[in-house]
Amino acid sequence: MTAAVDRMSEYLIETRDLAVSFGHVHALRGVNLRLRPGRITALVGDNGAGKSTLVKVLSGVQRPTSGSILLEGREHSFTKPADAHAAGIEVVYQDLAVAPDMSSVENLFLGRYLRKPGLLGRLGVIDRKRMRHEAQAAFDALGMTVQDIDKPVIGLSGGQRQGVAVCRASIWASRLVIFDEPTAALGVVQTEKVVALIRGIRARGIAVLVISHDLPQVLEIADDIVVLRQGRDAAELDPASSSVRELVDYMTGAKEGGRAA
């Protein structure tokens, strides 16, 4: 839950020449991504640029064809989602992030329930008290108030549900939280609240990767921007000195290269 202190590299997560191909289709052609602790990196790109594939690789769903993933300078191989979890990487998805009939508490521990100590735990009995306690602590830490954390999340608004998903990521992530279009389905007010939660995650000193189509939002919240085009990292930009126009130019290929950051 805390950021690693002994780092061999200034980057928490790094990818080198990451490539994924499905037969003749090259989804990724060599992506070099460097994610630093306590910074929000935005990943932008047109449809088909390879954003989803990159998320799949980093979350252990898709095996890369070539290239490597480094955790604090050391190479790791991800073959299944559990590997990414073990590496402290969590993803917040746009939809289907929570189980609607289950409580906020259970959603934070979905599939990773805490067990009672001793024999009962070995029989698979879950420890509701401890989960409640830790869930409340997680909500408090992010400054989020859920009216009744024991009620099914189906009764919450879309923004609140996304908040529950963000809190889950904050509990389990020790290195990186990836937000895959986290606010695409939300209204303006709810979006603001989720953005605040994203900043809350950054404040814990772990790396944050945000994938978004909302370019003004990207310019507002990101510390670094990486443009993905045709399966490559086409440019790295500093949001302070970039504009939406410039982002679009790099995304479409009107501008090339660029290491403004």
Binding site: L142, G143, T145, G159, G163
Partner: peptide, 10 residues
Amino acid sequence: MNETTTLARP
């Protein structure tokens, strides 16, 4: 952390 987000009635 200085942002406080209230996603529901307290």
